[in-house]
Simulated scan of single mutants.
Amino acid sequence: MEQDIKILVVDDEERIRRLLKMYLEREEFIIEEAENGRDALEMALQNDYDLILLDLMMPEMDGVEVCEELRKEKTTPVIMLTAKGEEANRVQGFEVGTDDYIVKPFSPREVVLRVKALLRRAQTSSFDHTDTQAKNILVFPHLTIDHDAHRVTADGQEVNLTPKEYELLCFLAKSPDKVFNREQLLKEVWQYEFFGDLRTVDTHVKRLREKLNNVSKEASKMIVTVWGVGYKFEVDDL
């Protein structure tokens, strides 16, 4: 993990901010805090954070509103902190670009694991690092993924993806026509086996398809649901 990782911790409860700050600083992360959504959004737009831990229910602006506004300008990885009874809000959070969520009450160790996993995926492109430059670009009909530039284009137009949406697309596209179940995708893309909610995968796939469809209907059709099993990346004319 690179040094000088800067994380914004956002929660209206001081004790939660203090707990998260303590555990994350043990990992030598630089921690900044905000106690409401409006301050958090202002800080997130003015600074380049490596990751944001964002409480869902807050005064001024809630976490969904903050993430929605943030995604208009930045793709900073976001982990949402939610209470158990807020499932509908979690789904809404994913739809506006949240990368992951953690349910309260949480284990601080779980938070550290989630943060490290998301930072790894956001900061490095783990696909074909040792291969030739040519292999760092995946080209399909209607879709191009440039790993070096971390850019996705569909029918010539750039598609603005969150880090997790990008990693999910890359993982599927690297193995055309291979079907992955949700458990496999949680393990390989999210890099954890024990904490994940399978609906996390479904919501990200839905959001990814929508973004592709806004640019190219043909590109969005490449992500195929295999009913009762999982998902695959399908290319008719490779």
Rank of each mutant, 00 (worst) to 15 (best):
D197S: 14
F195M: 12
T98K: 11
R109L: 02
E27R: 15
Y231E: 07
Q123A: 09
A40K: 00
V229F: 07
E234L: 10
N136R: 15
T153R: 09
G196C: 00
R120V: 02
I52S: 01
D177F: 07
D146R: 07
K221D: 14
D128L: 12
A173I: 08
K164H: 07
E2A: 10
L172A: 04
G230M: 04
A83C: 09
L113D: 01
P59G: 08
V205W: 04
M22I: 13
T130V: 08
D197G: 11
T132W: 05
L198W: 06
A173E: 08
R38I: 03
T132N: 10
L138G: 09
Q123F: 07
S126M: 04
E68A: 15
D197T: 06
Y101W: 13
R120S: 07
K74T: 04
K72N: 04
M222A: 15
G85R: 08
M1S: 14
D202I: 03
A134I: 09
I52Q: 06
T124S: 13
E87G: 06
E95Q: 12
L169M: 00
A83R: 04
M222I: 08
I137V: 10
Q3H: 12
E68R: 13
Y192I: 06
V215L: 01
A117P: 09
I16L: 14
R18M: 11
T130A: 15
N136H: 15
K84G: 01
P176Q: 05
E42P: 01
E27C: 06
T130H: 11
I7C: 04
G85S: 04
E158Q: 08
D12E: 09
R109K: 15
D128H: 10
H204Q: 15
R207C: 12
R90W: 04
T200Y: 07
R182P: 00
A83W: 00
I137R: 11
M43I: 07
K211A: 04
A154T: 10
I30F: 12
C67R: 08
Y49M: 07
D202S: 13
N214A: 08
V96F: 05
D100F: 05
E110L: 08
L169N: 05
T76F: 05
V159W: 06
T76C: 00
L169G: 05
Q133Y: 13
G230A: 06
L8S: 10
E28N: 13
V139R: 14
D202W: 01
G228D: 10
E158C: 02
F171N: 05
L186C: 01
K187L: 09
E27I: 02
R15I: 14
L118D: 05
R15M: 12
K178N: 02
K116P: 00
A88S: 09
L8M: 10
D4E: 12
F106Y: 05
P105R: 08
L51H: 04
T153W: 04
L168M: 14
P141K: 03
L212W: 13
D62E: 03
G37N: 02
P163H: 02
L143S: 13
T132P: 02
A122I: 01
V152P: 06
L238I: 05
N160Y: 03
T203Q: 13
V215Q: 05
E28V: 04
E25Y: 03
H142I: 01
S216M: 02
K74A: 02
Q46F: 01
K178C: 03
N47S: 11
